[in-house]
Amino acid sequence: MSYIVDVYFWILKILVAFLMAAMVVLVFGNVVLRYGFNSGITLSEEVSRWMFVWLTFLGAIIAMRERGHLGVDSLVRRLPLWGKKLCFTASYLLMLYATSLLFIGSWQQTLINWDVVAPASGLSVAFFYGVGLVFGVSTIPILLVGLYRALAGELDAAKLVTVQESEEGNIDEIQERHLASPAGAPVLVAVPVTSRRQP
């Protein structure tokens, strides 16, 4: 089961990279065509905007699993174990509630806009709102599993802190996460670099 989950999130990372590259091509290519050749890509603005929304939501799913969301943890880190568990449970319940609302709203908007066609691309606008469904289906199980593990006492004090104050993660955690990636997946290993003064 964990292998399937790893493969799923590896696919999400590939999609994020593809969306980023496609956005660069569409936006930069449109600028070059517009100013250099008095032409342009008709659907560039619309499709790149949709790609940006999908990129944001997919990235949030990945960050949720890898505990990569930024926040202020200075208070939580000073609490005793029961305080950390209480804050963890409260935050996960609030996130479950917010994600459920987002999922329900996205489902309703997807149904409403199923037959609405975007002006430039001709795609169904339901595709735009569908990212909320993907986000909900992917994130709600992460939150439920995390909540269960916290209530069952499977998480230590360090794992009960769900945010980090800077983008620089723990090198050991990054190495462990990427070394455990599925077979055949590209492995990224962060290696600390130290400088020495020559005598």
Rank of each mutant, 00 (worst) to 15 (best):
F57N: 08
L111G: 03
L101P: 05
A98D: 02
W82C: 07
L79D: 06
V137T: 08
G136F: 02
G68S: 01
W82A: 14
F128Q: 14
L43H: 05
L123P: 01
F135H: 01
N113F: 09
L123E: 13
Y129K: 10
D73I: 14
A90G: 12
F52I: 03
F37A: 10
W54P: 03
A126I: 03
R49M: 11
I112C: 00
S74F: 13
L86E: 07
C87K: 13
V134G: 03
T139L: 10
F128T: 06
F88L: 15
G105D: 02
L102P: 01
C87Q: 15
L133Y: 07
A63D: 01
V116W: 13
L102T: 07
F127K: 08
L133F: 00
H69R: 03
V145P: 01
P141F: 08
I140S: 00
T139E: 02
G130V: 00
F57C: 06
C87L: 12
S124C: 01
R49N: 08
S44L: 08
F103Y: 12
I140R: 01
W107V: 13
L70D: 08
S100R: 04
W54A: 14
S100F: 14
G122H: 11
V131Q: 02
G105Y: 13
I112Q: 14
A98R: 14
S121R: 05
P80C: 05
L94F: 08
L123S: 09
N38M: 00
W82N: 15
Y97I: 13
G105H: 10
Y129A: 04
I61G: 05
N38A: 13
V125A: 10
I140K: 09
V116K: 10
H69C: 03
V116S: 08
L81T: 12
S48R: 03
G122P: 15
L79G: 02
V134C: 11
T139D: 02
L96S: 02
L43G: 12
T89Y: 08
L144P: 06
R65F: 06
A63C: 09
T99A: 05
V76F: 05
F37D: 05
F128L: 15
L58E: 02
A126E: 04
Y92E: 09
V47Y: 09
S106I: 00
N38E: 07
